[in-house]
Write a protein that binds this DNA or RNA. Structure first.
Lengths: 257, 257
DNA sequence: GCGTAGCGTCTACGACGTAGATCTACACCG
DNA sequence: CGGTGTAGATCTACGTCGTAGACGCTACGC
């Protein structure tokens, strides 16, 4: 907490004198800043978020925001952290089968993505800007937890890392697919027109045009589950074939790779 | 082509009189603009690309660029098109097995991503901003081609679409993983320090810290192949189980799902 | 010669991220 | 009580951004 009790009292006093502010001038803290930033992103998209606009929304000078984030980039990292705080991180101690836990995590991530579609680009691209070890600690929790889960399931550490990469790669790709499933004209009843597919030359895109109905009937949860089926089956196969097993679980099938 | 012969002559003449420009003032065209934009993105990242900077690099007033892209967003879409023009689109007529063709396409996409790491965020996020049918036509070619390939392999249209989504979802996720595999300190020999993992509390991230060597020894091509193995195996299973078969190929195993 | 298209130049607007100076209010201490 | 330090507000400012629009010039077609 940056504010102190007395400063808080002062804020309340000057709020009364200042007047006209719809947002009560309570002491500002990092979380309040991030929550408002997230609200604005959810409402208008990332591009519409500026420090000036955020400052105005919070009833503060934009320069004040730099007390809570050293730069706009760091603010965006904070928003990612805020959103990922709701991610149901897999716990190896749950007693559930590892694939059940992974599925739960996947659906939790999907729910977050659907709740905050405008944040998805941030979720997938912020990591590109920062080396692993320099990222906000909270965003590394899922990695640690998933690796821990998979090691507990019998994968060796390398195999667990491989499983993590497969899982997150697939998951990120899936939510990117799902979030982009928007329509050109929501009020249109004809699938071809709704999706804007009528623009495409029939000669060049016969398949795509013929898939209008299927495209419009997208079921993200089902797609996710089916993808996870394939992923889990593949990982299971690797585990039972001894390709990715850890020392504690190498009790059967020492098959050559 | 926007320029005409006579305008070209005029350009050459004023180039001689203008002086000082390292870039010869040939007639400007869309491709030249996009190629330069791509070069700048590759060199300095997307954020460093502005219309003013691009105009300067081309020896043109930035307002001139609007002749070739209606907005900066459209310019970025054009860069994506330019980059994807190099993608080896799967051809169903190749005679090769469908999974071989998919693998080839995946590696082609990966090569593109590695050649233009700064463009990867654009590759994965631009589609979020535009409904499918309104996207640049060239960026829809892979979809049409992959669906065509899978239908030719025996999937029904819906199953082919499902396979396309799985494939691209996984592929996008993979390249996002791979492009983010950067190090905090390239000159450091100790893996823990190279990746900046020493910053992480050992108590909270024992797995992650223990994986420094594996993290540093990332082999993207191998990861991609292993992921594709799993994906192809899963899709094959669906096909042979009759879950996703098209009418022309339903000659075996009418198994219940 | 006239009209028009293409192009260059320039001004301008609203906006951006953020540096830094100055001022105010309040808490704390001697 | 007075002085000092700190948090926060306010303000100016800089360089930069995307892009609108006015104006002028040149070349070409009719």
């Amino acid at each position: 907490m940056e504010a102190r009790g007395t400063a808080e009292g002062d804020e309340a006093a000057s709020s009364g004198a200042g007047g006209g502010r719809t947002l009560r001038r309570a002491a500002l803290d990092r979380r309040t800043v991030l929550v408002e930033a997230l609200r604005m992103i959810d409402a208008d998209g990332v591009e519409a978020l500026s420090m000036r606009r955020l400052g105005r929304a919070l009833g503060r000078d934009p320069m004040r925001l730099y007390r809570f984030a050293a730069s706009k980039d760091e603010l965006l990292d904070g928003v990612v952290e805020l959103v990922l705080a709701d991610l149901q991180v897999p716990r190896a101690v749950d007693g559930a089968d590892w694939d059940v836990v992974l599925r739960r995590c996947a659906h939790s991530f999907r729910a977050i993505a659907l709740a905050h579609p405008h944040v998805v680009p941030l979720l997938v691209t912020r990591p590109l800007a920062t080396p692993l070890g320099l990222r906000p600690i909270a965003t590394l929790r899922p990695l640690e937890a998933i690796v821990d889960l998979l090691v507990g399931a019998g994968f060796d550490p390398k195999g667990a890392l491989h499983g993590y990469r497969l899982f997150t790669g697939f998951l990120h790709g899936h939510v990117l697919n799902e979030v982009q499933e928007q329509v050109a004209d929501p009020d249109e009843t004809d699938d071809l027109l709704r999706l804007g597919l009528h623009r495409l030359p029939a000669r060049d895109f016969p398949r795509l045009r013929a898939l209008a109905h299927e495209l419009a009937a997208y079921d993200g949860a089902a797609e996710l589950d089916e993808g996870l089926d394939i992923l889990v089956t593949g990982l299971r196969h690797q585990l039972s074939a001894g390709l990715r097993s850890g020392p504690a679980h190498r009790e059967g099938g020492a098959g050559a790779s």
